[in-house]
Design a protein around this nucleic acid. Sequence first.
DNA 1: TGGGAGTCAATACT
DNA 2: AGTATTGACTCCCA
Length: 713
Amino acid sequence: MYQDWREEDSEAAMTSSSGYPRDSFGTDALWDTENFGMTPTSSSGIPQVSIPVQYPNNNGLLYQSQHGPWSAQTNNGMMDKDNYSNGNLENMVEKEHYEEMERAEPVVYANDENTNLLEAKSSVPAYQSTSGSNNFWNSNSYKAWNDNPTTLKSTEPMDNYMHLLDTPLPNYIDTKELCEKLTREIHNYNIFRQEFAKKVLNKGPQVLRNILKYPKPWNEIRYGRLNYIRIYNWLNLPLEKRLGILDTELPEKKCETSETLKVDPLNAPLPEYVNLDTNQRTERVTQELNTNKISWGEFAKNQQPIQESRDVNDEYNDQPLQISTNIGSSDDLDIPDSLLNSSYCDDYQYENQLLHSNTMYNQQRNSDTEDSNDQYSNQPHSSNGKPIDPYRQRSFQNGANFNGNSERHQSSHSVNFDKMARRRQTSPGMRSPSLDDVTYLDESYREISDEESSQSTSSSSADFKAVEYYEELLAAPRKIIDEAYRKSKAFHGTQATSPSDSQASSSTSDTEAFEYYEGLLAAPLPYDTALDTKILGDSILQELETKKIPQTIFARRVANRAQGTVSELLRNPKPWDCVKSGRGVYVRLFNWYQLPVEQRMEIVDKKINWPVPEKKKSADKRRSATEAPAKKKPRTEFHPVQKTALNIIFKENPMPSADVMAHIAQTLELDIRAVANFFQNTRKRTNDQMKRNRHPQNDYEDYQKENQQGDYY
DNA sequence: TGGGAGTCAATACT
DNA sequence: AGTATTGACTCCCA
């Protein structure tokens, strides 16, 4: 039965037999072509589907905003608006699309001659997928597709820049700027706010939310500056430190009660990661207070951690004497540019982007289901204390073929599989431990470590060290950060060796090799890099097919996802910029794909029994070990009649109220949960489909399909 | 508290 | 036996 329930898309919609628009443009034929080559043939005049170009460094896949494909585009004159709108694609969709793009703010293109970010206005759609063979590489798709692209800007180069400065904490912080920047970072890196609030501010999520939403003018803050200082310090840390902080796993509490523990503010426990037992810390605090002219009283108040709680009152605890700024009125204030204004280092920033910027984005740190393996490495540092480009740090141990003409420096060791501190699901009702808890924490942490396992390279004390160290960074005034940073080299230096550093993968034990590969797969992407998920998916699909790699194995080992998930992911990838916390999988896929074949194959070798990558779930499972496992409702099988009815209803009203759903359920004799699930799933899948369809690439596919079916195969 | 995002995983399909 | 589909779930955020 065919139910065309989505007229909007129907001009090209092809609904599957089940009535769902699996692929509205029916592009599979095109994309799955066998000749959907691995080799870029750019010279032929025939428009063709581009294939990842085999660049020396990465197997040709998908690093945008650097060099390459875009230049071809630009040089060929294919990137300008006229060509775009008057060229091959002249249908309304395109135009509409283009206009959309135009409305969008600056898009940064890889080889835009214009080195000024701000001026790099969109003169082309983000996905240059119209014609020519080397297209499909995204420029900065993220920016282009984001609703508010202007706000998205690389900040890491600046951070490094800042880091090089021996700048004391300014006497003034433009809190608004600061918060805007943080908001961007949170967005860019998919940072889980609650985690940030907890680990950086040691506050609840509402506090952070309020700070970000209603930043108080610095001069009007009497109590609560510390929050801003911590944010400031965090933002100015080198990226790996920033991520390290967020990645640091706070000891799991034993008290699991969901009821919030009331903590006497006067006896507020310290954050887990604070160890006041060090003189050092006291010194730093003193320095900080002096530097910032913060009285001990103020400091003391602000140092009182707020218990984890969603209680909105938190913010008031936090800043008891806030001067009544009208909420949101900070706009009116004449706030001078602060040091944090990123514009002052645009050049530097841009340059760095071109050089493969230093930053990596934060992939998938939130989705708790899976990615305990998507780790961030603690990058070793060069001897001058300057952070080494994490990207450059990525090693391709066996990838001799990558080293030869690589522009990147590739260190002999690289991804440091820092087993430390994998974030665990924090439990509700968490509280901060007091000093008295230290022992207990230590124990519980050890427990965790043990369970966590086998290859753990760090001891609990190392974790505490890290935690303490990070705390110092966060609470420290700028001018001592460098010192701490330098000091940290020792700390991280000791952990910076990867198991298979010296030898290639094969001679190590399986576990070591596994860790090694896991590190490679989980390695983050350089900052500001967008993946063309469609190409990636197609390339991998083809790879699996030609190499006869079962999807199931691939899914488990490479993607660390279930087979069905990966199938869907590969077959119907979401445009990179539409992916929220799910980028990690794509990055894993990409990381795998760019490995040398031998390594690629080894990872999916059926004969090798790799340990199954750890699942974050374990934390949950452990926690709820005693509780009865929630049983899953058995799949409902909708009768075709029910399904049709639901689809029709959905078309009319995709978001029925609970009442309506109840009515529907009753009428169709379905479980209300099933009805709710249906709407939820259908909404989601419809939206996903629309996102994919919005992808200019699809327009191109469409175009190709219409105009030259099979011509170029 | 409801909705979106990301998944799992049962099971339909090839 | 491997892959695609899709109902159910979990986690987050607003």
